[in-house]
Amino acid sequence: MANDHGTQALRLVDKLLAERPDKVTHDFSAATRCLTAFRDDLVEDWRANRSEAARERMAKANAVISVIVGGHYPRGDIPWQHILEARKQLATLV
């Protein structure tokens, strides 16, 4: 399940990066919802195993969400370079 949500989130972030919309669109919400579902799966995993690896995956997913949400609600231009870095991080988790 975790990888389903993660894969879907990666696909949606890739779509955002490919299209790079100038204005914030609802696509960001779709990506965020998948990412938070992915994080929920990782939380479940961590609660079940309490392993260091599970905790690290959870923390990294949280960092990715911070960047994507910052792109959804930017303070100026959308930080595409940061989103690209976050995408790389996400890819390591999926």
Partner: peptide, 16 residues
């Protein structure tokens, strides 16, 4: 990382 004021964070809350 972005605009974390009340309005966008209300919307982000809806997205979980």
């Amino acid at each position: 990382t972005g605009d974390h004021s009340q309005l966008p964070m209300t919307l982000a809350m809806v997205d979980g």
